[in-house]
Design a protein around this nucleic acid. Structure first.
Length: 563
RNA sequence: GCGGUGUUAGUCCAGUCUGGUUAAGACUCUAGCCUGCCACGUUAGAGACCCGGGUUCGAAUCCCGGACGCCGCACCA
């Protein structure tokens, strides 16, 4: 791990560049150069392979601009906009609404900033730390606001997460999956947060890439048949208890974690395993990985349990790159309330349940003569009352009093009590959501950091083959007609087969190998004069530096073993 | 957003304190030559003072402001 050296080479060789550089740049944005974009796309493609083809989820793609209503319902409008004020004397920054509420003991959440300013002046509210004068209130709005349409009266926001785009499609998706839980939907794309002071390069961007899966499950069944396959996998768990007691993270199997109630359920654990598998396969090994459970006060407004996947870095320490949250039914319930749409699912029981229960009916032949024209409202009252309650009262006291405009006393002889059987075939529930949320840019950074190797004065990216931005280098040993033509033909052939190929003729062969190593090209194919006679080329392996003679028509077969 | 600090070719950097001819070096890059398999053959060439304002006859150099980076504080669903 060597952040400084790695970022230097990454900029030099076209992975990550500061955005808008010729206009002196804007912090919180980054450009992916040619190799960076390729690496990022390969990582995202690998992600799709695991979650879409691997888990049977489906990908959707929604707008990045959303109307205010959506983000109001999701809680982001309220949770992302904070009125701030600052002490002119000590420089401390505060949530304006918080210190006002503390002082005047009133809820001021709905007030505008200028009204809050007035309250501060009128009540002579000062800095809680040093009693200095407070500045005019300004808004920290973490969402980028924009206007939809020419009239400019419809407020829109750049989405702060991709997840909401999935939740608001729930009704359609539920029909697409024919009402059957569980099902998973993924979305990959940009999300936007106007960070106050982004300062850790690609770790905190204002525009960033997410890959999120929303897995809709039955809240009464958070198990998964796949758990069996992974129950003996070792996970490094930094649970709430361990953090509170300041102990070292546990290294235990998934099964143990479940049995000891460290993680809530099988699905969460299975998702933790999937995240780990993904990171392992793109070049981040277990020794640099851990799962950290959010502490109770740390959880986002929507979550009921949340684990971060953290990766160790030399510059930033443990960095959160993936969040795996049980969002419960927060989002669907909230969207259901705000949109007035039904967002529940009917769960059919395996066996219809037969429920025996006693019901109370009025004995009409006695009601009429006794209650006369009041009888209809007494009957209605009985029907609206829990039968068990009436029966209990009759058994205990011999009567049940119905309180309407006046009291009506019911005795046993006025009622018919029957035992009936009711068949219930299922129930309506709001699904819970398990959400693995990947920060792609941070993952790209971690892949760069952990793939970067320094060996014997040679610095290079040891990307795993599958995500290497350039897969093959093709080089004529010397820049002469014969070898060059063959090398050009091989290049074209490999490109047609879908490989990303670098073709290079200048410089010594050693230098070209070294440059290829630096950007992590796994294989180099060299054409020399012998090739003209025997039709064989040299294939050099980046990691072992071993060279093999392979005939030209077997190159494809050779490479297929590695990609 | 506050305080400190920095910014010179693609990269690493000298020069700035003490203003003055053509801004030095290394690597890189480009073109040519060279039967050459792990960056280290050869010739030639290209390439920079973060932006704006001020002081001055003259600013990479001094002053002010800004952008961006780094460090600390604050912020971080």
């Amino acid at each position: 791990m060597n952040h400084d050296k790695m970022t230097n080479i990454s900029a030099k060789r076209g992975f990550l560049w500061p955005s808008f550089e010729i206009y002196s740049g804007v912090s919180g944005f980054t450009d992916y150069g040619p190799l960076g974009a390729s690496l990022k796309n390969n990582i995202m493609q690998k992600w799709r392979k695991q979650y879409v083809s691997g888990e049977g989820f489906y990908e959707i793609e929604g707008p990045t601009i959303m109307p205010k209503e959506v983000l109001k319902a999701s809680g982001h409008v309220d949770n992302f906009t904070d009125p701030m004020t600052k002490c002119e004397k000590c420089g401390e920054v505060f949530r304006a609404d918080h210190i006002i509420e503390q002082t005047i003991k009133e809820d001021v959440e709905s007030l505008e900033n200028h009204e809050l300013d007035q309250i501060i002046i009128k009540n002579n509210i000062t800095c809680p730390e040093c009693e200095g004068k407070l500045t005019k209130i300004w808004n920290y709005n973490l969402m980028f606001q924009t206007m939809i349409g020419a009239k400019g009266d419809k407020i829109g926001y750049m989405r702060p997460e991709t997840a909401q785009g999935i939740f608001i499609l729930f009704k359609r998706l539920e029909r697409f999956f024919r009402g059957k839980l569980p099902f998973g939907i993924v979305q990959l794309g940009k999300a936007y947060r106007n960070e106050i002071s982004p300062r850790q390069g690609v770790i905190r961007l204002r525009e960033f890439n997410q890959a999120e899966a929303e897995i809709f499950i039955n809240p009464n069944d958070k198990t998964t048949p796949k758990f069996k396959q992974i129950e003996n996998e070792i996970l490094t768990l930094h649970s709430q208890d361990i953090q509170i007691n300041q102990q070292e993270p546990l290294k235990i199997t998934a099964k143990e974690a479940l049995d000891k109630n460290i993680a809530a359920n099988e699905i969460i654990l299975y998702q933790l395993y999937l995240a780990k598998k993904f990171l392992n396969e793109i070049g981040i090994s277990d020794e640099f990985l851990r799962f950290r459970q959010h502490l109770p006060g740390e959880m986002a407004h929507y979550a009921i349990d949340c684990w971060d996947v953290e990766v160790l870095t030399d510059k930033y320490g443990w960095v959160e790159i993936i969040g795996i949250a049980d969002r419960g039914d927060y989002d669907l319930k909230s969207h259901s309330q705000h949109s007035k749409e039904n967002l529940d699912v009917f769960i059919e029981y395996d066996q219809p349940q037969i429920i025996k229960k006693n019901i109370v009916k009025p004995n009409l032949s006695k009601f009429g003569p006794l209650f006369k024209k009041d009888s209809s409202k007494v009957i209605a009252a009985i029907n609206n009352t829990d039968s068990e309650e009436i029966i209990k009262s009759i058994e205990e006291t011999g009567k049940y009093i119905i309180k309407l405009d006046k009291d009506y006393e019911l005795t046993r002889d006025l009622l018919i009590i029957e035992e009936i059987e009711e068949e219930i075939s299922g129930e309506k529930i709001v699904p819970h959501v398990i959400e693995p949320s990947f920060g792609i840019d941070r993952i790209v950074y971690c892949v760069l950091l952990h793939s970067f190797k320094e060996e014997e004065g040679k610095d290079y990216f040891k990307f795993v083959n599958e995500i290497a931005p350039v897969q093959v280098g093709v080089y004529p040993l010397i820049n002469k007609e014969g070898p060059r033509e063959i090398a050009e033909r091989i290049t074209e052939d490999l490109r047609n087969k879908g490989y990303t190929v670098e073709f290079e003729v200048t410089g010594t062969i050693g230098k070209r190998y070294a440059k290829a190593d630096e950007i992590g090209i796994p294989f180099a194919i060299t054409v020399d004069f012998e090739t003209l006679d025997d039709g064989k080329v040299t294939i050099r392996n980046r990691d072992s530096e071993k060279q093999e003679r392979v005939s030209i028509d077997k190159i494809n077969y050779y490479l297929e073993n590695y990609f």
